[in-house]
Simulated scan of single mutants.
Amino acid sequence: MTYEENRYWKNVLTVVPICGAAVATLSYILRLYSRRFTSAGLKLEDWLMGIGLIISYCATAFVVDSAFNGVGLSLGTLPVDERRRIQFASWMIQKFWAPSAAFVKISIVIFLKRILGTVRAFSIVSNILIAFIVCWAVTALLGNTFQCWPVQYYYDKTLDGHCMGGQRSFFQAMGAIALVEDVIILCLPTPIIWGLQITFRQKVAVTLVFSLGGLVCIFSLMRLIEFREFITTDLASSSAKESIWTCLELDVSVICGCLPLMKPLIQGFLGKVKSGVSKGRSHPSSGTKLYAFPSSATHNNEGFLQIDDHLGSQASKGAEIMASDSRRSSDVEMQGIAVHTRIQQDVEPVPTDSTEALSGGPWAR
């Protein structure tokens, strides 16, 4: 039974993380291809997403390494060297989880800010959220690093040291905060989208694109629930499920962060979003765009539409006012032009004694 249990977790912790990392990598490659295809160039959020993906590889590597060192078995049944390696792998996974998640989340927030950042309230909330994510990641990294003193005591119990009290509570607190961040990122663009003057179908389509992040919330919640069974003194038997959810959370966050930028795939899934413009008009319909916000958005060079209600309406009104002023000034100038017409006629003098003149007859020319 011991051999079968070890083989099961060995297969699971090898196949699932590698497949998840492969799909995440493919998603990021398609994202980069989409950038190149649209000639938009790489943006800051693309670099941050790439860094988060690379860091997640490190966490995946240590999860796979733990699969070959008796994970799923009781720690007391393992040799000393395997016991130390599996505890070291658990310690290292914690170091890469928070930084990877932070880079991915900040990348998504910056992308949303690029699309919706012209709304002042959204821009302010986004900046606050980015600062909070940075503080959370630094706190989680430092807490996971120095939870034991000396730090090597976490994976080498032969040393003289100690660990802080409430380790599991600390892990649960960091996981709960991460879940709250995911929920905020998921709900952040919804009020703006549903406040636009667009059709109900367009609102639903755009909301579905942004709601893909709900999958990340599910995996974050599963990871948080698994910490209830997490035993810090027996990581070999209690860390298997937590390691799976950790890898899947990072991989799914990368996938969901890249999907909105893969326009051909998204359009194939959702179909072309129809605009409110009738088909009889000669100009092309804005419904062929991924995010179509008629009369309330402006194009950018990434192929997306940037919401700009306030500035767009002011610019339109300003153009109309300038045109009206121009017409009025032209009328004033035209009124100042005097047209002089002089008619010259040669008239012969009429004799005063002429009977024809007295009778009102025609003048002789």
Rank of each mutant, 00 (worst) to 15 (best):
S359Q: 06
T232M: 07
C217K: 01
S237M: 05
A315P: 07
G280K: 11
D156T: 01
V119C: 03
Y153K: 10
F227S: 09
S220F: 02
R223S: 03
D234A: 00
L265K: 08
A67G: 11
D46R: 04
S126N: 06
F103S: 12
P150K: 01
K113S: 13
R83C: 07
A315Y: 14
F210R: 09
V252W: 01
L13C: 12
V183M: 09
K272H: 14
Y57M: 07
E348P: 00
S330Q: 15
H299Q: 08
S316I: 15
M334W: 14
T355H: 11
D325L: 14
T355A: 12
L129N: 05
Q267I: 06
L30E: 01
E45N: 02
D234Q: 00
V80Q: 09
G70R: 01
H162I: 07
L78D: 13
G72A: 05
G70A: 04
Y154N: 08
V119D: 08
V64W: 04
P362R: 07
G336F: 08
R85W: 03
I18E: 11
D308Y: 03
V12D: 05
F96M: 14
F122C: 06
K241M: 13
S238K: 03
L112C: 11
A131Y: 06
I185D: 02
Q197L: 00
G213V: 07
V216Y: 01
F230H: 09
L215V: 05
K95Q: 15
D251N: 10
L48K: 07
Q267A: 06
T14R: 06
F269L: 14
C247I: 10
V125T: 13
I29W: 09
K157V: 12
L221N: 06
V15S: 06
V252A: 01
G50F: 12
I255G: 02
F200A: 12
W97V: 15
P264V: 06
Q345C: 07
S34T: 08
L224Y: 10
S237C: 04
R36P: 00
W194C: 08
D353K: 13
C19D: 10
R328L: 15
T38K: 01
T190N: 07
P191F: 02
A61S: 11
F227H: 06
A67Q: 06
V64F: 05
Q335S: 11
I54R: 04
F210T: 12
W149H: 14
V63S: 12
L188I: 08
G287C: 05
I184T: 14
E302T: 14
E229T: 10
F68E: 03
A98E: 01
A98W: 00
S100E: 00
A40C: 02
W363C: 00
V206A: 11
M92Q: 10
D156A: 01
V151P: 12
P264M: 02
F171P: 03
S275C: 05
Y33S: 15
G76W: 09
A178C: 14
S66P: 00
D81N: 08
L270G: 00
D156Q: 04
E4M: 10
S27L: 09
E5T: 15
G70H: 06
I106Y: 00
G214L: 02
A101D: 05
V216A: 08
N69W: 03
L141A: 09
